[in-house]
Write a protein that binds this DNA or RNA. Structure first.
Length: 892
DNA sequence: TGCGAGATAGTTTTT
DNA sequence: CTATCTCGCA
């Protein structure tokens, strides 16, 4: 609504129709005031400048890695505004992640100041939610609909599969969910699938049934899943041309980033938004179209479309991304212009050469000629560890070296293929007192206790949501079991009322006195919280003894005229937490894990409070939307000054001075799962390409020759991608050939002189490791410098697995706490001493470290549990160690 | 109803 | 290895 008002700021006419085909040449600064240089074009190369100033119905910017596409995109938008070709409200810019969106917004604000207000800069999903919330009533939803994340979808599917007894046919929530997701990304629903399904195949019929019932349940729950957000918006536009017309008219300029990662549904959405408004719809518009908007045929011209992408960075095929969208763009959108950005401003030549060499092995791609004016820079560093711990140790040491050389922690990133690889890395980083953070991974909002609390909020916003409701019944445990739940759910379904109403009817349902009281108590709490969230006065007298004022008598007129102001989300949440005593109950359990959970809940309150401050009066629904759509909670502070750990997928769009790519092994990168898939390896290669091109100055490629997964240890072969990089570019500190010899595992005996065929101890060598010849070419590389390359293995003797694990968890928790306590790595972890908490160290002391051997303490900084010892080791030189957690002891 | 032990099964990337 | 589920018992 309010955005629409911006559409028509009284008299000021638009400069010229932005979509008048092919009008603008590259005449820079056409309307710029003072002549001379145009700040928006200044410093851009010709291709970039063209990408900023080109006008026409469609523009494809082929942007190689590091070619300044964000700059181009932001400048293009700013240029449109400044040249008066568009109002901010006519801009719709779509990015892939929220992080990219907020970064873009910031940069545009930097160029335009307040003039950037009113633009839609968001992800596909956020934009669609915004549209759907506004138009929900058009197709039988309520604007307070819930957004199901994949866990919610799975919970729903689980129920359905169980009801249909489909599990015996091999249907699981996971495989069914991903199949449904795939279909939805192709915009096909249950009926479409049924039309093509094989009627005689019981599995197919059953799947149709599951799919149908899933869609039905979603609707009954007033919920959308992730894929629906896009798909339903498309359906909305197709079935309601008048609604579509509103958006087609409004958004005159559509800009899409990372276009190579769009799937079919997203493509369809773009198509819908870039259709002209036909005359019969033009007539129905409110406010009516002005003459300037309408062309000779009585239509409103199609919006202009700008897409930016790089087919070499397409890494989301598994999610339905269709590379054809970008490859066939010119054919798709007639009159499209193509601008190629090929100069790389990010990386050194060595890094770029490696990237080009790797990606060059993908056959079906258009050649690009990425080049840089930078020098060669440092060589890429390679390292092969004996184990993943050894690899991690190398990473930690190199990070410290870099740090000593003046590279800030915040300029360093460590990438990996799978989230499970973080463990070894985290352990070593903690021990080395390197501040780090993990992006993505186990997300804050996926934690059980957070989901519990969120279930209350969700249920308040949407009392028809069975998933949220069912979750909150059992959290905390209060004696409402499956039996009672089923009874309430049945009642709810029969009467077609909300779950909250069903609970209020509990007295009539023949529950025992205790249960009845519990249920009505809970119903009243939800009711109270709902009123609060809606901005209605809390019922009657102060809390404490719940007054008689039950639901039905809620129509007191007192608040009728006072404008309803939604209560701060944090207050609602606080009410829930206080009344349910969730936090207290966790604390009472005296388990450190539960203590952490309690803290998480407190953090959730803090998050909500922050949301309230940033979005005053936005209300519960906005909060829920943000939570379900925001990926990693802590994207926000890039300034935290810590090393960043993330998967390579998460890394897309980011850049760092120094980058470590870990686990560069066959089976991991490329991942085993991808090897059999068609095009799988190509996609992995693009992933590798993305990883490499994130690095500005320094690139480290590391691997391990053995890797522990699912319990036992297996031999790992170097990735084929390593072979694709010219040997001259890599400086091997320890090459694969030096470590694996002939594919055996020399697990512990590395101090033994090489060549002597060390004992192939422990694990069965060569299991499943059909000898590729990958390792052969590496044998020749040199050993690199002495010193830090060779040290004892760090494998902690795995005597007692369980206690070692517990120990590690505890250590990790403490260390995280320490990091969280304030900016980088300040003071404090109190009391709870561990390992060496009370170890006294003074300069001059000799100590022994499990990994590094003996060394001499040169200094101690920090206080309490944050004490950091500076030690010069005989073998590896200076290291910083967190005294409390390091495996060190004084040598007498 | 709620808890703990034990068995089991599944392991990629994410808005 | 680990997360999830089932089963039996209090």
């Amino acid at each position: 609504m309010s955005e629409f008002e911006l559409l028509d700021p009284s008299g000021i006419p638009l400069g010229r129709p932005s979509t008048g085909s092919g009008a603008g040449g590259a005449s820079p600064g056409a309307g710029a005031a003072g002549g001379g240089t145009d700040p928006l074009l200044d410093g851009l190369n010709p291709a970039q400048a063209r990408a900023v100033t080109a006008r026409g119905p469609a523009l494809l910017i082929v942007a190689g890695a590091g070619s300044g596409k964000t700059r181009v995109l932001t400048h293009r938008i700013a240029h449109l505004i400044r040249e008066r070709e568009a109002w901010p409200s006519q801009i719709l810019a779509i990015t892939f992640t929220n992080k990219a969106a907020s970064e873009m917004r910031e940069r545009i604000e930097g160029l335009l100041g307040d003039a950037a207000q009113g633009m839609w800069i968001s992800t596909f999903h956020s934009a669609c939610v915004r549209i759907l919330r506004r138009e929900a009533e058009r197709f039988g939803y309520v604007s307070g609909f819930t957004i199901y994340d994949s866990a919610d979808s799975r919970a729903l599917l689980k129920r359905i599969i169980k009801d249909l007894e489909a599990d015996t046919y091999g249907f699981t929530p996971a495989n069914t969910g991903s199949k449904i997701s795939r279909l939805k990304n192709e915009l096909s629903g249950a009926d479409d699938y049924a039309a093509t399904a094989n009627e005689s195949d019981p599995r197919d019929r059953l799947f149709v049934e599951i799919f149908r019932s899933y869609e039905q349940e979603l609707r009954r729950a007033n919920a959308f899943d992730f894929d629906d957000l896009i798909g339903q918006t498309v359906h909305l536009f197709r079935s309601h041309p008048d609604v579509a017309a509103v958006y087609q008219r409004r958004f005159r300029h559509l800009l899409v980033d990372e276009y190579q990662d769009t799937n079919h549904a997203q493509y369809a959405l773009i198509r819908e938004l870039t259709r002209p408004v036909e005359p019969e719809q033009v007539e129905r518009l409110t406010p009516p179209a002005r003459a300037a908007e309408i062309d000779a045929m009585g239509r409103i011209a199609a919006a202009s479309l700008t897409v930016v992408g790089d087919s070499d960075q397409s890494i989301y095929a598994f999610r339905g991304a269709d590379i054809r969208n970008i490859v066939e763009f010119e054919r798709d959108f007639s009159g499209a212009e193509v601008v190629k950005l090929e100069q790389n401003y990010r990386s050194t030549q060595n890094i770029l050469s490696a990237a080009n060499a790797v990606i060059g092995n993908n056959f079906d791609r258009q050649e690009k000629h990425l080049w840089t004016a930078e020098g060669d820079g440092a060589k890429i560093v390679g390292f092969t560890g004996y184990s993943q711990h050894d690899e991690a140790r190398f990473v930690a040491e190199e990070i410290e070296d870099l740090h000593r050389e003046g590279v800030a922690y915040g300029d360093i990133a460590v990438f990996y293929r799978t989230n499970s690889q973080t463990r070894a890395l985290e352990e070593l980083l903690i021990r080395s007192a390197v501040p780090y953070r993990v992006l993505g991974g186990t997300k804050f909002y996926e934690r059980a206790e957070i989901k519990d609390a969120m279930a209350y909020l969700t249920s308040i916003a949407n009392p028809y949501d069975p998933i949220a409701w069912s979750r909150l019944l059992g959290a905390p445990k209060r004696g409402i079991g499956p039996m009672a739940e089923a009874q309430l759910a049945n009642f709810q379904e029969e009467r077609d009322i909300s779950f909250h109403e069903a609970m209020l009817a509990a007295p009539d349902l023949g529950f025992g006195p205790k249960l009845r009281a519990t249920i009505t108590g809970l119903a009243e709490l939800l009711h109270r919280a709902a009123r609060m969230a809606a901005g209605l006065p809390s019922t009657a007298s102060a809390d404490g003894a719940a007054p008689e004022g039950d639901a039905d008598s809620a129509d007191d007129p007192a608040w009728a005229e006072g404008e309803k102001r939604p209560a701060p989300v944090a207050d609602v949440l606080k009410l829930i937490l206080d009344e349910t005593e969730m936090i207290e109950k966790l604390r009472a359990k005296r388990d450190p894990q539960d203590e952490a959970r309690a803290e998480n809940l407190e953090e959730l309150v803090a998050v909500a409070r922050e949301f309230d401050v940033k979005n005053p009066g936005a209300g519960l629904l906005a909060f829920l939307t943000e939570v379900s759509l925001v990926a990693a909670a802590d994207d926000l502070d890039d300034t935290s000054g810590t090393v960043s750990l993330m998967t390579m997928h998460t890394a897309k769009g980011l850049e760092y001075r120094a980058v470590f790519i870990t686990g560069v092994e066959e089976g991991l990168l490329p991942h085993q799962m991808s090897v059999d898939e068609i095009g799988g390896v190509s996609e992995e290669r693009r992933l590798m390409y993305v990883g490499i091109t994130r690095a500005r100055e320094r690139l480290f490629l590391t691997l391990a020759s053995t890797r522990a997964q699912f319990g036992d240890i297996s031999v790992a072969m170097p990735s084929r991608f390593l072979q694709e990089i010219p040997e001259a570019l890599i400086d091997w500190r320890q090459s694969p050939g030096e470590v694996t010899g002939r594919g055996g595992t020399e697990s512990r005996a590395l101090n033994a002189p090489r060549g002597g065929q060390g004992s192939a101890s422990g694990s069965r060598a060569g299991r499943g490791a059909t000898r590729t010849d990958s390792s052969v070419s590496f044998g020749a590389s040199t050993a690199g410098r002495g010193g830090s390359g060779s040290a004892a293995v760090s494998e902690p003797a795995s005597g007692n697995m369980q206690s070692a694990l517990d120990k590690w968890r505890e250590r990790k928790r403490l260390a995280k706490e320490a990091q969280r306590a304030g900016g980088g790595f300040p003071n404090l972890i109190d009391g709870t001493a561990r390992d060496n908490g009370d170890l006294e160290l003074t300069p001059g002391d000799r100590i022994r470290h499990d990994d590094y051997g003996e060394g001499r303490v040169t200094g101690v900084t920090g206080a309490g549990s944050k004490r950091i010892a500076h030690v010069v080791f005989d073998s590896v030189g200076e290291r910083k160690l967190l005294v409390k957690l390091s495996p060190i002891a004084k040598v007498e």
